[in-house]
Design a protein around this nucleic acid. Sequence first.
DNA 1: GTGAAAGCGCTAACAA
DNA 2: TTGTTAGCGCTTTCAC
Lengths: 351, 351
Amino acid sequence: MPRRRQAVTIKHVAADAGVSLQSVSRVINQQPNVREELRDRVQASIDKLGYVPSIAAQRMSGSRSYLILAINDRERTIADWRARQGSDWVDQMLLGGMLKCAELGYRLIFELVDTHNDHVERELQAAIAALQPDGVILTPPHSDNPLITDLLRDQSIPFVQIGSRGEGGGIPIIMGDHGAARMATRYLIDLGHERIGFIAGSPEYRLSTWRTKGWHEEMASEGLPVEGLLAEGDFTLEAGRAAARELLSRTSRPTAILASSDQMAIGAIETVREQGLEVPRDLSVVSFDNTPITRSTRPTVTAVDQPIAETTSRAVELLVAAKRGEEIPEGPINIPVGFIVRESTAAPPPD
Amino acid sequence: MPRRRQAVTIKHVAADAGVSLQSVSRVINQQPNVREELRDRVQASIDKLGYVPSIAAQRMSGSRSYLILAINDRERTIADWRARQGSDWVDQMLLGGMLKCAELGYRLIFELVDTHNDHVERELQAAIAALQPDGVILTPPHSDNPLITDLLRDQSIPFVQIGSRGEGGGIPIIMGDHGAARMATRYLIDLGHERIGFIAGSPEYRLSTWRTKGWHEEMASEGLPVEGLLAEGDFTLEAGRAAARELLSRTSRPTAILASSDQMAIGAIETVREQGLEVPRDLSVVSFDNTPITRSTRPTVTAVDQPIAETTSRAVELLVAAKRGEEIPEGPINIPVGFIVRESTAAPPPD
DNA sequence: GTGAAAGCGCTAACAA
DNA sequence: TTGTTAGCGCTTTCAC
């Protein structure tokens, strides 16, 4: 392989425009103190030669790499990809993140990091050392991992903590989990349900607690009981089945179930069906996530929509703003969720 | 923002091990002419200090960037992401590509490029100039775009053409479209079908032609007619509906339909149903792709499985091998497809 | 087998 | 407002 050099460098542009390297650099970086005439001349040369700065070189000398690193949990992500069950979390992150990055002249690099590894830090550190990103986007369950947040804070790399209230020193963004759980519970209450079961997600994810709390509060606000109506799962289909079996075995069985993931909701629906009941006639089901599968099952599933694309887009914006030294709003940023009513919910059966 | 420097550089390692920068570089790059004793000593320092080379610096001086660029069609990809219909093409590419890259010490960068743009070259050129990738993975419909292949060839950047027979000068990889279409057609013939309709994909994709040819040949091999049994679509659900309407309007209506995408198959199923027919009782349907949705519709869809992850994985291997100057096999590499039988196929109805 | 020197493309700091 | 200088971290010569 021949050693490949940049086809058009800043030198070519400088020569073509008859100015110094510095002036070209200033134009590229939209810095002040450049006369308009000179700026135009340089820009013309850039366009003419089709010059694009090498991010490697920019990173080498300057303080920016124009790279944003988005971190996801390796095990879980690969499992989702392999399962091919239509979880589009990654796609939605790319949708929001890549487009916003492109808009701002950045590039999104997607990385997998293993939470359940003693070497989380080493792994992350390696990615950081290799890429020198200008910012990092953390997703659950990494968002609140102190090994990770400490590392980033120590190196003063701006980072966003998605699904975190922000104890780690990063910029916290949440997708209204608490409010969403209340909203979904309220929807079921308004349909006439009184015994509403809740299948929580794994406690490793903070949002699990927030959602549980939201459900709990909304129930309490109506004076409805929650005793025996809470089960826990790990977001998987199988967990949904098990949790549903548990909830249905109670003497006073729920007429509705709110599940912390689409997969758990679908597992629950299957279990309900196995017990000779019908959704939504005998029991309503609402899920969290709103992945594509909610639209193709029978019945289709009423779901809380996680605004992942918008959240990631916002995350990129915030990181770039932080890098530029702009003001970042105080406190967790809350991206409002959606609620999509489909076929899996109805009024409870008459007693 | 403070100017952030590499925490541990090659200098630190060199100092720690008491050798020259050069020797450290040689160890990192596994070059010959290093005594084992020295190699071990350097490696120990690397591990101790947690040193990871900066790819920016590597790229600056050397000939490698350790970056592989995967190019997808912008418009189509974003439309898929927005539609949230569960297409997991991107995920499968990442699954195969990222894991193989990680294994080989590379990094996969995912990029979107607009085919229907006069500036394809500019866009691609910009990505190349900015990132200086060691290799590029082209996916349809980019794979055979001469604007793109010429550009890459001129710059002697190794590239893989997925879904191409390789006229562009890159490494061609195909996912057995021709054989897969024959196989699927054969499956239907063996079930007893004689009038098998085919919904082709848009001709912009070469694989559309290959599949059509495969179907045609298999039909011919049995002496079965194809007249009035071919319709064309653009892979979308709506196109599937339209194509199915067309096929069903023919005097001698098919008893089975082979569609070039899952979405078109589902569109076809909906149309079939609207006409008062039932799948698979009155008409069988087979699709190409095997995206998650095939498993959650009613009936579930029998499908040709596109081995996207494996293909991408292989693509990365080949690019790295090419970069190393290793021998690349002649002729298109064919990754075998799978065939998943589900509920949408059965014997044809009695006359 | 090992080390020293030059330079990749760009920007920060300073000088003019 | 503009240009000059000195590196960034690494690899490629080319000496030894």
